[in-house]
């Protein structure tokens, strides 16, 4: 399992936007969950099933393009 920590997610709508963008980019069968885990600090986590390095980098780009989100790891 791979987790990406994302900053600037401030509500559930952000989680839904990120999920939508990832699903449209081909990750529909690889996403486990997208959750806002730390609302106070606007941080969420995207959990994937196993991804290779290319897929991870592509996912990061999709997330960052979806809005003013920053992948922290």
């Amino acid at each position: 399992m791979k987790e990406l920590k994302v900053k600037n997610m401030h509500c559930e709508s952000c989680a839904k936007i990120i999920q939508m963008e990832l699903e449209e980019s081909g990750y529909i069968n690889k996403i486990i969950s997208v959750e806002l885990t730390n609302p106070q600090n606007n941080i969420g986590v995207v959990k994937f099933k196993d991804l290779d390095q290319n897929e991870i980098e592509k996912a990061k780009a999709v997330i960052q393009k979806a809005g003013e989100y920053v992948v922290l790891n």
């Binding site: 401030h10 709508s13 936007i17």
Partner: peptide, 9 residues
């Protein structure tokens, strides 16, 4: 709707 993300969504 309560925020800009709602608008985007």
């Amino acid at each position: 709707m309560h925020c800009a993300s709602c608008e985007v969504l």
